[in-house]
Design a binder for these strands. Sequence first.
DNA 1: ATACATATATGTTACTTGCATCTAAGGAGT
DNA 2: ACTCCTTAGATGCAAGTAACATATATGTAT
Lengths: 251, 251
Amino acid sequence: MPRDADRAPTEADYLAAYDAEAFERPSVAVDVALISASEGALRVLLVERSEHPQRGRWALPGGFVAPNESLDEAAERVLAVKARLTGVFLEQLYTFGDPTRDPRTRVISVAYYALVDAATWDRAARDTEKLRVARLVVPWEGETGGPVEARDPDDRPLALAFDHEQILGMAVRRLRGKLDYAPIGFQLLPPQFTLRRLQDVHETILGRPLNKDSFRRRMLASGNLEATGEREECVGHRPAERYRIARRSAV
Amino acid sequence: MPRDADRAPTEADYLAAYDAEAFERPSVAVDVALISASEGALRVLLVERSEHPQRGRWALPGGFVAPNESLDEAAERVLAVKARLTGVFLEQLYTFGDPTRDPRTRVISVAYYALVDAATWDRAARDTEKLRVARLVVPWEGETGGPVEARDPDDRPLALAFDHEQILGMAVRRLRGKLDYAPIGFQLLPPQFTLRRLQDVHETILGRPLNKDSFRRRMLASGNLEATGEREECVGHRPAERYRIARRSAV
DNA sequence: ATACATATATGTTACTTGCATCTAAGGAGT
DNA sequence: ACTCCTTAGATGCAAGTAACATATATGTAT
């Protein structure tokens, strides 16, 4: 694992490591994967790079961290500026700091992922210039961290800039891992939703079908759901009850 | 959630956010929580700060990220320089970037956690000057992210520097969360260990007793363990079989 | 040799999960 | 109005997994 394992660290290393001023400071950016689920696939908002470097490639919306804002605030700002979204589920994912990940200069990127329902996502994608829809093609064996492909609405593969494919792969894995024990599926749905829609979301994220009954039982037993008493309308069959996130649910 | 939710972002914000050169760049550091488990408690290595700021307080060993090293490499270097350890389990935890977390200047800290067996940890704590043992007192309800207390060998509470208490809290939560589905318990044990020792480790991390039989079954069924054929010696009772991490185990 | 302490095996019960079946409730076509 | 179709939602059962209790094995200490 450690590359320097053989070389015994010297006192000079120690000093060098601690003298912050001696180092050229890196830029720190946040990149946000705005994710939604619709029509059986995960979708993520990408922006086409019009400038060097990686011109023409697709990138996650991002921005440099301003001196007086926290990382969370920077991610919120990026989301507000680029996708006109505020108040959505937003969580830190991982920090990518390979020295060569940006050819210009050292840029350390703190990656975030945000979850919104499909309608919000569509609105964000429509309203915003320079942003384009991308569908994430998540490989079956993606559980293990295989590469995640992004495709445009015409199903053509998109070349992602920097290490953003890696970021998306980690976002998908994080979603899959948290789905079982954290109430995040709701975040991809509007405030009220039927159990079927929730199951669709879970199946999309996991990439495999789930048993309807045990899914229902598990969700209702979790205590995170609350029946609204309202029902779907004009659906051509028995209307399903609508649920919402229970107030006591730990988000 | 978003603090700037009310203020509509302007084009100036957008440009400002993207013009990296206009920003004073932050320092980026790594802080490493070197964790082990012994005598029923988690232990972490801390260094007493002899300089301003936070002089006299206890901090996680850390260092600034050098221009040509990745974040992982920086964490490995910190571990090698400060604890004389290489080749141990090391994983990124979270990145802390509150603008005021360091009173000197903006320092963004990428926190890591490392896991070693008790003997290695003791050796690291003994060999290294300026490093002191600390016992983590993990509250019962720590699952929810309650504060984590650190105490010295005489059980006196230690005042931690910066936001390092928060980092430790997140490390404990991460350990607890991963314990069920990732083979990390082994990392706190020597290469060979009995099932009882492994259970001790799990109970220490989770802070609650586990059922012996189902723990055995679960561990053996996971396929991550491999019997060595060797047994404990001079233990005053029936010696337990020793196990090791199975070769096919995904670490 | 015997007592003792712990490891390991066996068995019993409660709970969870997957699968199958059945009924409920709407719309659409006749 | 009636029947058909589709999906919602409830119920029952079998298989698998969990905790818990008990019994047996196997070493050291006396």
